[in-house]
Design a protein around this nucleic acid. Structure first.
Lengths: 143, 143
DNA sequence: TTTTAATCAGACAATTTAATCTGGTTATGT
DNA sequence: ACATAACCAGATTAAATTGTCTGATTAAAA
């Protein structure tokens, strides 16, 4: 195995980046996101529903409905989506699975992993997703 | 969720670190490891069996049997256990779950995540586990 | 006003991972 | 020799994650 985010979270991140990149004022139906990103439609629908509850996206029901970001991409960070879907617990838990891993009771790699984990957190929280627009578009056109 | 290693891998790492730290020439029964590390006995048994197949530990059957490292701790690195249990695929796959994430077709965070992933790999492969003896003992005495 | 295309809610199914059980085999120590 | 304490192999169960289905509701468009 060895995974960082859950599939749900990966898909959620992809979908939000997609919406930020295509930046349509109008709403985008789940089916379109499903097609563009090769994510099962029903699955991404559920994920978008949960992101609606979290206040990251807004939904419009009925014909020509769909989803759109509830804030401008310059106000959204990757960590927001991670937090909404997977939560942030892993940024405070032991790499080796030891109980109560802390500065007091450190595991053998506590310090070193802590540094990397912090850098990962910073990576996900320093930039807003408007910065990823170009790279996202390039990537999506390649799928 | 958000996890780095599977539970199997976490437990495997703990067990190997434990054996390296207590460094008994004689073998250590699965039940002892289970007790000391609070890992279900049958589960850690299976994991140790698979590590035996991988050649990381050796087993001795019959009464007063058990497991011991097949090499000196100064010849074993954390990445060896990770490789044996979870494999190394994740060190070469996309953080966001995009298909074919590569320098050619990078995802929006390809570069940055690549750097961190490499550092994580280095962390797991630079030091041999004899270096963790002291820290492991301290941690274990706290469980 | 009716059709249509969408979200939504909740149950359901499939897959993967985690953990347990059962019985067999092995070798030590009495 | 034989009881005992360990590994071993394979089946089974349990739990979590991933993915699907059904039907209801909503609202735009014909």
């Amino acid at each position: 195995m060895t995974v960082f985010f859950s599939k749900k979270c990966e898909y959620g991140l992809q979908a939000v980046l997609f919406m930020a990149a295509t930046e349509s004022d109008c709403v985008c139906p789940a089916e379109e996101i499903s097609n563009k990103l090769n994510i099962p439609k029903e699955f991404i629908s559920k994920i978008l529903q949960s992101l609606t509850e979290s206040g990251i996206v807004e939904s419009k029901k009925g014909k020509s409905g769909g989803f759109k970001l509830s804030k401008h991409p310059s106000k959204i960070k990757l960590i927001d989506i991670v937090n909404a879907i997977d939560g942030l617990d892993s940024f405070n838990s032991c790499l080796l699975g030891f109980p109560e891993c802390s500065p007091d009771k450190p595991c053998p790699v506590h310090e070193k992993w802590g540094v990397l984990r912090t850098k990962a957190y910073e990576m996900l929280s320093s930039e807003t997703i408007d910065k990823f627009k170009e790279k996202t578009l390039k990537k999506i056109n390649n799928i």
